[in-house]
Design a protein around this nucleic acid. Structure first.
Ligand SMILES: [Zn+2]
Ligand SMILES: [Zn+2]
Ligand SMILES: [Zn+2]
Ligand SMILES: [Zn+2]
Lengths: 136, 136
DNA sequence: TGTGTTCATGAGAATCATTCTCGCATGACT
DNA sequence: AGTCATGCGAGAATGATTCTCATGAACACA
């Protein structure tokens, strides 16, 4: 998924980056950069919007955060570093990480059958969680 | 995937919409709206950019075209109306439609296990096609 | 702890795809 | 042909993301 990164770029520890990561740790769903920016401001840990974007990008590069590109804006979530997919509530954003070994093999096989190399895949499942279903 | 559409909106046939669909029929990969707009202009079949976007949106609504949201811009491709996924060359855009019954069942099952309803999923496989691999 | 080098920050401008506005043109139907 | 709802196009507007660049802060080292 991520490249081998021969030159591990040094990452400087700052209040802002810590704040972004700490906030993500407390949330259990995907959130947009703008949402996170607003939340940080509410909590007094003000961080510039551009910096939020930069911090998120760095976290994504480091494999600590997953990004989901929906219709308009991208959403970010603190995730485990092992390969997995998501089951996302399209109403409240609540997310469950799910693994599926079969689809991993399937993707590799079907790609090989068609002569494709350097294969990646993306799989996301969307639905309405139990809480949101009963709440309506 | 698509909503029940109680009032099937009538779709008026115009030169522009026909041109967009005809162009898509000739291409075998995903193309952005801007690309299609440029191609139409080159071929003399000039169509306004806003109209290209509107035509594509209509085609998507009608299930004739699939849309792929990459990093920045959305890409469109004439596709068969039956449910399927894509194997896309990340270099030249060439695309193969692939079906995978197992993942359909898996998605439904894992969603149910977690209490999620009204489930959808999106699965795309990216790679470098044989032609692009040898060409480099 | 002081000092210098280097990278990070942030406010606002810039970018860029997409959508909206609105006056005019053109399909569909009688 | 006549009516009328729709579609068209040029340009403005929108909105998320990125860039600019002067200032501030981390970090390595003495
Ligand atoms: Zn929910
Ligand atoms: Zn996977
Ligand atoms: Zn290719
Ligand atoms: Zn499927």
């Amino acid at each position: 998924m991520t490249r081998p990164e021969p030159t591990e770029a040094p990452r400087r520890q700052t209040r802002q980056r810590s704040a972004v990561l700490a906030l993500l740790e407390q949330l259990d769903g995907f959130r947009t950069a703008q949402d996170l920016h607003a939340l940080l401001r509410e909590r007094g840990e003000a961080v510039g919007l551009a910096t939020v974007y930069r911090a998120l990008q760095a976290l994504v590069d480091d494999g600590l955060v997953d990004v989901l590109r929906g219709d308009g804006e991208a959403a970010y979530r603190r995730c485990s570093p092992v390969h997995h997919h998501h089951l996302v509530c399209r109403s409240c954003g609540r997310t469950v990480e799910v693994a599926d070994p079969p689809v991993e093999r399937w993707a590799a096989r079907v790609a090989a059958e068609h002569g494709f190399a350097d294969v990646q895949h993306q799989l996301e499942v969307f639905g309405t969680c139990a809480a949101c279903t009963t709440a309506r």
